[in-house]
Amino acid sequence: MSVQAQEQQRHQWLEAIGIDSWLPRQPLPGAAAPAGWVADFRYPQADGAADFADYEDSAAESSLSGPAQGAAPARKPGGGSGIDTQALLGDIQTRSAPKPQPKPQTPPPAASADPAPAADAAAPTAQKPVEPAPHFKLAYLVRGDLLIIDSLPPHHREGFSRQHKRLLQGVTTALGLTAEQELSDPAMLPWPMLASKTLDQGPTEARLAVEHKLKRTLEFRPDISRILLLGDAAMHWVTGEPFKQGALPSLSGRTCVASISLSELLRLPERKAELWQDIQPIRNTAS
């Protein structure tokens, strides 16, 4: 089939289903040049008397070789357009109509002697409520064989300040440590560690974190033989016991004493005498 006949057939089909097609009759300014078949194209006449010689020859050859896929339908007798519009539309509607879906069969319920377990299994599992996170801040420092764990105000922005370090230098020197034994930088453990309402950072997790920190510190510095706990938070979270000033708790086989925090001593310098009394047991054992 020639290009002219193919385009004639395509436009005839478009007209049959109610679609108007437009072709240029003269060159349009700024537009691409039309295809060669456009100049000789003729729309079908109203009475269907258009001359489709090439198309008719192709249709005759198709009728001899049998029906082929995509072959054009036979023309109606009487010079009609050759397109059975009703049949075409009916075929389109048939193909576009939704196919009936088979109704799903509901399986019979399984016999159960005791339906109670199934009901219990379907019930949602109650989630364990998240415990409120405690708030504290601990500073870990080492000088010689002495480990100091100091309690800091949880919301204090400055943290372990120069005033804290200067005061601790004097306290540790009074315990018999020499100038060659330098005071380490503070390692901070703030709690809660993350700003999350869904993450479990309750008391149990806080105690595990403090225990882990102490264990790692003693593993890194096995020469530590004395521990000084300063403040309520250090005593409570490290030993699990309530704070008692001057207490001598047992901690990993090391000599340990609890006393006032450095922040309290900076706020109330007159309490330094109390600290001096509290640290006498570990001062006496210093080499």
Score class of each variant (00 low, 15 high):
Ala16Trp: 01
Thr217Met: 11
Gln93Tyr: 08
Lys272Ala: 09
Gln6Val: 12
Gln163Cys: 05
Gly78Met: 03
Arg162Ser: 11
Ala122Glu: 11
Leu275Cys: 00
Arg267Asp: 13
Gln4Thr: 03
Ser250Cys: 03
Leu28Lys: 05
Ala139Lys: 00
Ser263Asn: 11
Gln105Leu: 05
Ala113His: 03
Gly80Arg: 10
Leu28His: 02
Trp13Gln: 11
Ser63Glu: 15
Ala97Gln: 12
Glu211Phe: 01
Leu189Lys: 01
Asp51Lys: 05
Pro203Thr: 11
Pro29Asp: 13
Trp276Arg: 10
Gly70Ala: 12
Thr255His: 08
Pro100Asp: 08
Leu167Pro: 04
Leu28Tyr: 07
Glu205Asn: 10
Leu168Gln: 02
Arg95Gln: 13
Ala116Arg: 12
Ala16Pro: 00
Thr198Trp: 00
Arg10Ile: 14
Gln169Val: 13
Pro73Lys: 03
Glu264Ser: 15
Thr94His: 12
Pro107Trp: 09
Gly36Met: 09
Leu268Ala: 12
Ala187Ile: 12
His164Asn: 14
Ser225Trp: 01
Leu208Arg: 15
Ala133Val: 00
Lys272Gly: 12
Leu89Lys: 07
Thr204Phe: 10
Leu138Phe: 05
Leu229Gln: 06
Gly246Gln: 04
Leu228Asp: 00
Asp84Gln: 11
Gly159Ile: 06
Ala121Trp: 13
Val238Arg: 00
Lys103Leu: 13
Ala122Ile: 11
Ile224Asn: 07
Gly80Met: 07
Ala234Leu: 03
Pro107Leu: 11
